[in-house]
Protein backbone atom coordinates (compact mmCIF):
# COMPACT_ATOMS: atom_id res chain seq x y z
CA UNK A 1 0.00 0.00 0.00
CA UNK A 2 2.78 2.33 0.60
CA UNK A 3 3.72 3.60 -2.68
CA UNK A 4 6.64 5.81 -2.32
CA UNK A 5 7.40 5.88 -5.89
CA UNK A 6 10.87 6.84 -6.24
CA UNK A 7 11.85 10.12 -6.29
CA UNK A 8 12.61 11.83 -9.39
CA UNK A 9 15.56 13.86 -8.68
CA UNK A 10 15.23 17.02 -10.42
CA UNK A 11 18.43 18.77 -10.66
CA UNK A 12 17.75 21.63 -8.56
CA UNK A 13 18.14 24.77 -10.40
CA UNK A 14 18.80 26.72 -7.38
CA UNK A 15 19.00 30.25 -8.18
CA UNK A 16 20.53 31.90 -5.28
CA UNK A 17 20.52 35.20 -6.80
CA UNK A 18 23.28 37.57 -6.58
CA UNK A 19 22.76 40.73 -4.97
CA UNK A 20 25.11 43.39 -5.20
CA UNK A 21 24.54 46.61 -6.83
CA UNK A 22 23.67 49.91 -5.56
CA UNK A 23 20.55 50.09 -3.62
CA UNK A 24 21.39 53.34 -2.04
CA UNK A 25 22.56 56.25 -3.99
CA UNK A 26 24.71 58.26 -1.70
CA UNK A 27 23.90 61.37 -3.64
CA UNK A 28 20.22 61.05 -3.26
CA UNK A 29 18.47 63.36 -0.92
CA UNK A 30 17.70 61.52 2.22
CA UNK A 31 15.36 62.29 4.97
CA UNK A 32 12.76 64.87 5.24
CA UNK A 33 12.88 68.49 5.97
CA UNK A 34 15.43 70.42 7.92
CA UNK A 35 15.98 71.26 11.50
CA UNK A 36 12.60 72.75 12.13
CA UNK A 37 11.28 69.74 10.36
CA UNK A 38 8.74 67.30 11.26
CA UNK A 39 8.49 67.88 14.95
CA UNK A 40 7.45 71.41 14.51
CA UNK A 41 9.63 72.64 17.28
CA UNK A 42 11.43 75.84 16.60
CA UNK A 43 15.05 74.97 16.22
CA UNK A 44 16.46 78.43 16.38
CA UNK A 45 18.45 79.72 19.23
CA UNK A 46 16.25 81.11 21.90
CA UNK A 47 17.66 84.29 23.21
CA UNK A 48 16.02 86.14 26.02
CA UNK A 49 15.66 89.41 24.19
CA UNK A 50 13.16 90.40 21.58
CA UNK A 51 13.60 88.66 18.30
CA UNK A 52 14.29 90.55 15.14
CA UNK A 53 10.98 90.72 13.27
CA UNK A 54 12.52 89.52 10.06
CA UNK A 55 14.17 86.48 11.66
CA UNK A 56 13.01 82.93 11.23
CA UNK A 57 13.01 82.63 15.01
CA UNK A 58 10.45 85.44 15.14
CA UNK A 59 8.30 83.59 12.64
CA UNK A 60 8.55 80.33 14.55
CA UNK A 61 8.16 81.64 18.08
CA UNK A 62 6.48 85.01 18.09
CA UNK A 63 4.02 84.46 15.28
CA UNK A 64 3.96 80.69 15.68
CA UNK A 65 4.67 78.18 12.93
CA UNK A 66 1.93 75.77 13.95
CA UNK A 67 -1.84 75.78 13.66
CA UNK A 68 -4.20 73.11 14.99
CA UNK A 69 -7.18 71.30 13.48
CA UNK A 70 -10.32 69.63 14.75
CA UNK A 71 -10.73 65.84 14.57
CA UNK A 72 -10.90 64.62 11.00
CA UNK A 73 -11.10 68.19 9.65
CA UNK A 74 -8.92 70.33 7.45
CA UNK A 75 -10.91 73.55 7.76
CA UNK A 76 -9.20 76.52 9.40
CA UNK A 77 -10.46 77.77 12.75
CA UNK A 78 -10.59 81.50 13.54
CA UNK A 79 -7.48 81.05 15.69
CA UNK A 80 -5.70 79.34 12.84
CA UNK A 81 -6.67 82.11 10.43
CA UNK A 82 -5.31 84.69 12.84
CA UNK A 83 -1.92 82.96 13.04
CA UNK A 84 -1.83 82.34 9.31
CA UNK A 85 -2.64 85.97 8.55
CA UNK A 86 0.50 86.93 10.49
CA UNK A 87 2.49 84.15 8.79
CA UNK A 88 1.39 85.52 5.42
CA UNK A 89 2.36 89.07 6.38
CA UNK A 90 5.80 87.87 7.44
CA UNK A 91 6.26 85.95 4.19
CA UNK A 92 5.16 88.97 2.17
CA UNK A 93 7.59 91.18 4.11
CA UNK A 94 10.42 88.67 3.71
CA UNK A 95 10.09 87.66 0.08
CA UNK A 96 13.40 85.86 -0.16
CA UNK A 97 12.23 82.94 1.97
CA UNK A 98 10.36 79.84 0.91
CA UNK A 99 8.29 77.59 3.12
CA UNK A 100 7.37 73.93 3.35
CA UNK A 101 3.99 73.36 4.95
CA UNK A 102 3.78 70.06 6.77
CA UNK A 103 0.38 68.49 7.39
CA UNK A 104 0.03 66.09 10.31
CA UNK A 105 -2.68 63.90 11.82
CA UNK A 106 -3.23 62.22 15.15
CA UNK A 107 -2.99 58.45 15.41
CA UNK A 108 -6.73 57.83 15.33
CA UNK A 109 -7.14 56.54 11.82
CA UNK A 110 -5.35 54.35 9.36
CA UNK A 111 -1.97 55.31 8.01
CA UNK A 112 -3.23 55.83 4.48
CA UNK A 113 -6.26 57.90 5.45
CA UNK A 114 -4.08 60.12 7.61
CA UNK A 115 -1.70 60.77 4.71
CA UNK A 116 -4.67 62.15 2.78
CA UNK A 117 -5.84 64.16 5.76
CA UNK A 118 -2.40 65.66 6.38
CA UNK A 119 -2.22 66.66 2.74
CA UNK A 120 -5.61 68.37 2.92
CA UNK A 121 -4.54 70.30 6.03
CA UNK A 122 -1.29 71.45 4.48
CA UNK A 123 -3.17 72.50 1.34
CA UNK A 124 -5.70 74.47 3.38
CA UNK A 125 -2.84 76.41 4.94
CA UNK A 126 -1.13 76.94 1.59
CA UNK A 127 -4.34 78.16 -0.01
CA UNK A 128 -4.94 80.60 2.83
CA UNK A 129 -1.40 81.99 2.63
CA UNK A 130 -1.82 82.41 -1.13
CA UNK A 131 -5.11 84.21 -0.56
CA UNK A 132 -3.17 86.63 1.64
CA UNK A 133 -0.73 87.47 -1.12
CA UNK A 134 2.05 84.88 -0.77
CA UNK A 135 3.18 83.51 -4.11
CA UNK A 136 2.21 79.88 -4.64
CA UNK A 137 5.67 79.28 -6.07
CA UNK A 138 7.27 79.89 -2.66
CA UNK A 139 5.16 77.29 -0.92
CA UNK A 140 5.42 73.53 -0.95
CA UNK A 141 3.23 71.08 0.95
CA UNK A 142 4.12 67.69 2.38
CA UNK A 143 1.97 65.29 4.33
CA UNK A 144 3.34 63.22 7.19
CA UNK A 145 0.02 61.67 8.16
CA UNK A 146 0.50 60.14 11.61
CA UNK A 147 4.19 59.40 11.05
CA UNK A 148 5.58 62.23 13.16
CA UNK A 149 3.50 63.00 16.24
CA UNK A 150 4.56 65.93 18.40
CA UNK A 151 2.94 64.72 21.62
CA UNK A 152 3.19 61.05 22.43
CA UNK A 153 0.39 60.07 24.74
CA UNK A 154 -2.67 58.30 23.40
CA UNK A 155 -5.44 60.60 24.53
CA UNK A 156 -7.07 63.78 23.37
CA UNK A 157 -4.59 66.06 25.17
CA UNK A 158 -1.88 64.80 22.85
CA UNK A 159 -4.05 64.18 19.80
CA UNK A 160 -5.08 67.84 19.81
CA UNK A 161 -1.43 68.89 19.50
CA UNK A 162 -0.75 66.39 16.74
CA UNK A 163 -3.55 67.53 14.42
CA UNK A 164 -1.46 70.34 13.06
CA UNK A 165 0.26 72.05 10.22
CA UNK A 166 3.75 73.42 10.61
CA UNK A 167 5.05 76.13 8.31
CA UNK A 168 8.78 75.48 8.01
CA UNK A 169 10.68 78.44 6.64
CA UNK A 170 13.30 77.44 4.10
CA UNK A 171 16.82 77.86 5.41
CA UNK A 172 18.00 78.94 2.02
CA UNK A 173 16.35 82.04 0.70
CA UNK A 174 15.35 82.09 -2.91
CA UNK A 175 17.46 84.44 -4.97
Amino acid sequence: MKTFSTIAVLSAALTLSACSGGLFDSNSRLGGTGANGVNGAGGSDISAGALAPNSVAYFDQTIGNTVLFAVDQSTLSPEARSVLTQQAAWLVANPSFTAVIEGHADEQGTRIYNLNLGSSRAAAVRDFLVSQGVSDARLQIVTYGKERPLALCSDEACYAKNRRSVTVIGAGAIS
Binding site: T3, I7, L10, G22, F24
Partner: peptide, 17 residues
Protein backbone atom coordinates in the same frame (compact mmCIF):
# COMPACT_ATOMS: atom_id res chain seq x y z
CA UNK B 1 24.48 47.96 1.55
CA UNK B 2 22.03 45.45 2.58
CA UNK B 3 22.71 42.11 1.13
CA UNK B 4 19.55 40.56 0.11
CA UNK B 5 19.24 37.03 -0.59
CA UNK B 6 16.95 36.57 -3.33
CA UNK B 7 14.54 33.89 -3.23
CA UNK B 8 16.23 30.66 -3.47
CA UNK B 9 15.00 28.37 -6.03
CA UNK B 10 13.84 25.14 -4.72
CA UNK B 11 13.00 22.23 -6.75
CA UNK B 12 10.17 20.09 -5.85
CA UNK B 13 9.88 16.73 -7.30
CA UNK B 14 6.43 15.97 -7.00
CA UNK B 15 5.72 12.43 -7.12
CA UNK B 16 2.32 11.98 -6.16
CA UNK B 17 2.70 8.32 -6.88
Amino acid sequence: MTRVLAILGLVCMSLWA
